[in-house]
Design a protein around this nucleic acid. Structure first.
Lengths: 208, 208
DNA sequence: CTCTTACGCTACGAGCCGTAGCGTAACTCC
DNA sequence: GGAGTTACGCTACGGCTCGTAGCGTAAGAG
């Protein structure tokens, strides 16, 4: 979890797990106070009570460090089971919006995505650490809805994944855009409107 | 257009419009070659054949400069009139996707949005220079569709604007998320699937 | 007790930032 | 055509961050 090339040789002094936690927490604190652009490696190391060289031994740079620090925030996302897909989606939308209200997430998410446009390794790291963690909710919610007969099953398994991806991009993309680009509140009313729009779309267009 | 506090006093030597164009073009070139994070003011000034001090006389910093440089790219977006809302939406989606394939746009858009989370002035600048330029297409397309009877009119004018905002966030947010976060191709097939989903949603949920 | 690795600390060259100061160029008004 | 005003190019600067090297010490494994 912590860093890149973990040699993980058995012998020698092991890396301090406490240091990892302190560094990631310090990174989040620094993001809140300074924001992405003014955050420096030296500052994080000082906050964490750790030498700057230790930071570079575990993370290649600011990008990778911040991805890991922010990824932990996404563990809080959970899919409720209210027996109704629409209610479940609305709930997740509001959870995600609450996450995007946190200053660490706001300033870091867009920044690392921006960096990832020129760094394939960072893109993969974001995918596994953040994106996949969100997408699980969509996969799970869709399975439940199909089991309850709220959504049609895909006739062909080859169509199932593209549809899941589409739903995921619609939900995550729309909420992020509303919160960070349009920068208008994601409140109960808006979440209900958006969810209604999405549900009508899903029930109407079966396959494609 | 070019910068912030334009004194615009009548007397004295006027600012060179050619320099503005050269600077913005140089900024886009630098974005393509270096990306957002490695772009420096000194580099841009050298490319533009302009003194670094001239840059700072017109733009407060990298953020504002890049917003203006990228905003011009959005002038190319146009709403076609194919007589069918679905076809028009699909066309705009593909136009927007093509824009997001350009390296300047990819690396800059997310970056400036990230910065704007801690800078209200930058947020306003992005809104007027980029966001509003996109949103016009939605407003116009919706008017046409209502005139053709493809979409229901809002009973109350107070509901018209929130609905327009919602549609805008869905379209722009989903395409951006697909292209930059999921980083998967926005091709004809995907655009058709997404548009179909959106159209069903719009026809189904009238008011909200 | 030895071997191996992690850690803290210091120091360093390099690069960029944003500004000050000066002399010159371009344009307006009288 | 001269005086006033503003933009421009150039140089130089202190301050900050970067990422690394080198060294002595601490903590586990065998």
């Amino acid at each position: 979890m912590p860093n890149e090339s973990t040699p993980s040789g058995r012998t020698g002094r092991p890396r301090s797990a406490a240091a990892d936690a302190a560094i990631l927490a310090a990174t989040r604190d620094a993001l809140v106070e300074l924001g992405w652009s003014k955050l420096t490696m030296g500052d994080v190391s000082a906050r964490a009570g750790v030498a700057k060289t230790t930071l570079y031994r575990r993370w290649a740079g600011k990008n990778e460090l911040v991805v890991d620090a922010v990824a932990e925030l996404f563990d809080s996302l959970e899919l409720p089971d209210r027996g109704c897909l629409e209610a479940d989606v609305e709930d997740v939308v509001l959870q995600f919006a609450a996450l995007l209200r946190r200053p660490e997430a706001r300033t870091a998410l867009m920044a690392v995505v921006a960096e990832s446009t020129r760094d394939p390794a960072l893109r993969d790291r974001i995918r596994s650490a953040i994106v996949d963690r969100q997408k699980r909710l969509v996969v799970l919610g869709r399975q439940r809805a199909q089991a309850r007969g709220e959504l049609p099953r895909e006739p062909d398994d080859a169509l199932a994944e593209p549809t899941t991806d589409l739903i995921f991009d619609v939900i995550a993309g729309t909420v992020v855009h509303r919160a960070l680009v349009s920068s208008e509140p994601v409140d109960d009313l808006w979440a209900a409107s958006f969810t209604a729009l999405l549900m009508h779309g899903l029930r109407g267009s079966a396959g494609a």
